[in-house]
């Protein structure tokens, strides 16, 4: 799975939580929850979706590191790489 696949996976999970979203308008290095109106339930569903898509468990303690789309992408990519290397 390359970076592009991760990006597409994240956006498709996001779209399932916020169907009205226009993905091309998202700025990847700005806080995601300011750009997409996600409440705590949406956020949790988003994380559950990521878990189901990527098989990565995201502890609550890590939430603070997942602010922008770039953050999430890096976070997931790092965790995906580990078992492969």
């Amino acid at each position: 799975m390359n970076v592009q696949d991760v990006k597409i996976g994240i956006l498709s999970v996001l779209a399932s939580v916020a169907p009205e979203l226009e993905a091309e308008l998202l700025v990847p290095d700005r806080p995601l929850r300011r750009q997409v109106d996600l409440d705590s339930m949406d956020w949790l569903n988003f994380l559950v979706g990521l878990h189901q898509t990527f098989g990565v468990d995201i502890p609550e303690a890590d939430y603070a590191r997942l602010v922008t789309l770039d953050d999430i992408e890096r976070y997931l990519f790092a965790r995906l790489d580990r078992p492969q290397s």
């Binding site: 705590s40 339930m41 949790l44 994380l47 559950v48 878990h51 468990d57 995201i58 502890p59 609550e60 303690a61």
Partner: peptide
């Protein structure tokens, strides 16, 4: 911390 993401609780 002890729960998988699918079973986490929200403050709500």
């Amino acid at each position: 911390a002890a729960r998988p993401v699918t079973e986490r609780l929200l403050p709500a």
